[in-house]
Amino acid sequence: MTRSLSDDRPDGPADRTESDGDAVADAEPAAVTGGAVPDDPGRIKVGVGELAVTSDDAVLTTSGLGSCVAVALVDQRTGVRGLLHAMLPAGEGRTTAVSRPAKYVDTGVDSLIGALDDAGADPRRLEARVAGGAEMLDLTDAVGPRNVERVGEVLDNAGVPVVASDVGDAVGRTVRFGPDGRLVVRAADGFERAI
């Protein structure tokens, strides 16, 4: 049998030498996460540097947040929700922010809002919940707090209010974002609260 060409072109730097010239724009579709099974109605896992959007009852989860930050956005009227797991504060101007916008807070939040818009949310009605951004190590010059600060700035610029947050300290977190629009944050010691 023959494996032939399909429309699913690979992304990444290698594409840019392709002759047909359309390859640069093929960033990951925003509503599909790398590690996730997008049509799973139960649970969608969002990996590091990924985002996912749902308009049904799926629970969006991301685990092992340390200095990384999770941004959960919901339009309560339509129920359309999205979750971002960003690693670094600022991606603007970086090459990798084009292919992996969700790696960074600024480009990630923009992409998330865009994906929510596409999925039927009204960006003017969005509200945000934020978790993570811990200061896990002295070695790594406050990347967690810088992530949290950037989230505040970017959401402020976008006009999205932060209604609740559980950030900072030196504790790892795992989050679940369910259809009720609340973000359930579980800390490393097992303590859990909904914000």
Binding site: M136, L137, D141, V143, R173, A188
Partner: peptide, 24 residues
């Protein structure tokens, strides 16, 4: 040494984040 005691993924995430500033 810096002692860490937490969710495994969380302990390593800041190291990965720092390196990721320069490489994917």
């Amino acid at each position: 040494p810096e002692f860490v005691h937490d969710i495994g993924a969380s302990t390593i995430s800041p190291l990965v984040a720092k390196l990721s500033e320069r490489q994917d």
